[in-house]
């Protein structure tokens, strides 16, 4: 424990010497992980602050309900705490993506067994209609686009949705997405291609919808 704390302190000292935002962020994460391993709750909370947006937004995109996304985020951070000793500090980001996807997959399976009433096709269509209505006045607003895209994402199968979220929304590379999804780059390309085509057709249908 003492050794880890000393390592963390050394990392924080060395951080002053490093240049570049990404490098600094990595060494900060490393230091936070080492402090959190040593049992510092503030370090763990700081770690959560660093990654809360990534985890919650990814979960919210993959899952359909905001409440489920919050539950998933909590579960992800609890797993992070449990496995802190085994995670390489420089790989925390991709580890969190992978665990987020896994937790969301578990929740989606549970959802399939207990389908929610507010996720049926009528609800999606109503949302789509509302989004389509708001575009009449002065072109497509960002909020409208967001709503249409969210509806289109929800209509995708889980694997395609996850691949698209990681690649197009989170901005990861195809190879990184494949690693996180524990799949091959070719499979991910195929999923992304299919998802993009479906989303395009979905959005065009929404914008052409007669009032």
């Amino acid at each position: 424990m003492l050794l880890e704390t000393a390592d963390a302190a050394r990392f924080l000292e060395n951080r002053q010497l490093t240049t570049g935002d990404e490098r600094t962020a990595t060494s900060e994460t490393t230091a936070l992980v080492l402090f959190a391993r040593a049992g510092d709750p503030r370090a763990f909370e700081q770690l959560m602050i660093s990654f809360q947006k990534q985890v919650l937004c990814t979960a919210a995109r993959i899952l359909r309900r905001q409440e489920d996304a919050k539950d998933a985020a909590q579960e992800v951070f609890l797993r992070l705490y449990r496995h802190l000793a085994r995670i390489r500090p420089e790989a925390v980001r991709s580890w969190l993506y992978r665990v987020t996807v896994n937790v969301c997959r578990d929740m989606a399976r549970r959802d399939r067994r207990f389908p929610s009433a507010d996720l049926d096709a009528d609800t999606l269509d109503r949302k789509l209609l509302r989004a389509g209505d708001s575009q009449v006045e002065g072109g497509i607003q960002l909020e409208t686009q967001r709503e249409i895209l969210q509806c289109a994402l929800q209509a995708l199968p889980f694997k395609e949705r996850t691949a698209l979220v990681l690649r197009d929304i989170e901005g990861l590379s195809t190879e990184e997405t494949a690693r996180i999804l524990q799949s091959s780059a070719t499979t991910v390309r195929s999923q992304i291609s299919s998802a993009r085509v479906k989303i395009r057709h979905y959005c065009e249908r929404a914008l052409r919808r007669p009032k």
Partner: peptide, 10 residues
């Protein structure tokens, strides 16, 4: 557009 709406406004 998808990249722009990365932030969900949470």
């Amino acid at each position: 557009a998808m990249a722009a709406c990365r932030d969900l406004g949470i």
